[in-house]
Design a protein around this nucleic acid. Structure first.
Lengths: 152, 152
DNA sequence: GGCAAATATATTGTGCACAATCTATTTGCT
DNA sequence: AGCAAATAGATTGTGCACAATATATTTGCC
């Protein structure tokens, strides 16, 4: 078999597996809050800036309306957000945090904290995680840009 | 808002977004082969070692029967694999490559090649991708091990 | 003003992921 | 042998992702 087809050589599989492993670590921390990981992401965005359009949330998370519309409807059914059509442009839907959606931020603070503990919470681990995060952000940007020239 | 809740600080989101971006780069390369990315992963495993049990494929890809059973059934419907119950242990199902599943390896060689071109195909990019891959493999191992002690 | 093109969201359909449960079979113990 | 526990895979149900398409509204141009 050709070397380039070996599973353990593949960056994509490493990404895929690590991403799923990471989400599985989040899951028991989010379950008490009644959130899935993508719902948590939407709240992270709204806690940074409330009352965004669906499109703006989509731009930050790289998700389209096919994913967001039903997800936001479920969150509205849970009274975490309120969806409001814009007055001046009826095409747009603005997503507002509800009081309970806003209140959840307090509990959510514990999530990264619990993860830090779980991850070791030592400076070397923190530095390494930061470096890894930045490499991933760079990779994603590279892939999104059509990736015609090498990174860095 | 607490700094630790900022989206762009989160390793998990970087992983999630990069993984999806990477899969989207594979998609147009796999579509001519009639494969989804998880189906391609199963074939990668079988090209390395044919006639594995469902359980063994699951161990390599970190997937359970809830995901693999329907996926393998779809692949069998496409005549890429054959599912055979074991004679000596009727609980087990062994997955064999069909001739066309085996033949697909030839075309699949071009997938990593096309990616390498797209990624830049320069030594620095290769080294960096290798380093990133290894960091991700380490992270995944760490997360799966319960992650009570720091990595490295 | 009228209409084509653009825009924002919604809908439909397919295919994962994954928790929870179920079924069938095998193993191990006495 | 007989039976509880373990094992392998299948099933069910929920929730993403995402392509493709549809709907409704707005914009820009004549």
């Amino acid at each position: 078999m050709h070397e380039s087809l070996r599973l353990d050589n593949q960056l994509c599989f490493a990404l895929y597996a690590a991403s799923r492993a990471m989400t599985q670590v989040y899951q028991p921390l989010l379950e008490p809050l009644g959130l899935t990981y993508p719902q948590y992401l939407v709240l992270l965005v709204l806690w940074e800036e409330d009352a965004l359009l669906v499109k703006e949330i989509g731009a930050r998370l790289d998700l389209d309306s096919g994913t967001l519309t039903p997800l936001l409807k479920r969150m509205e059914a849970q009274s975490l957000v309120v969806r409001k059509r814009q007055e001046n442009d009826q095409r747009q839907v603005r997503i507002h945090l509800s009081p309970s959606g806003r209140a959840l931020e307090g509990k959510a603070i514990e999530v990264p904290h619990a993860l830090a503990c779980r991850y070791g919470n030592v400076p070397s681990a923190y530095v390494e995680a930061t470096r890894l995060r930045d490499a991933l952000i760079g990779l994603r940007k590279h892939l999104r840009n059509g990736a015609t020239e090498p990174p860095r």
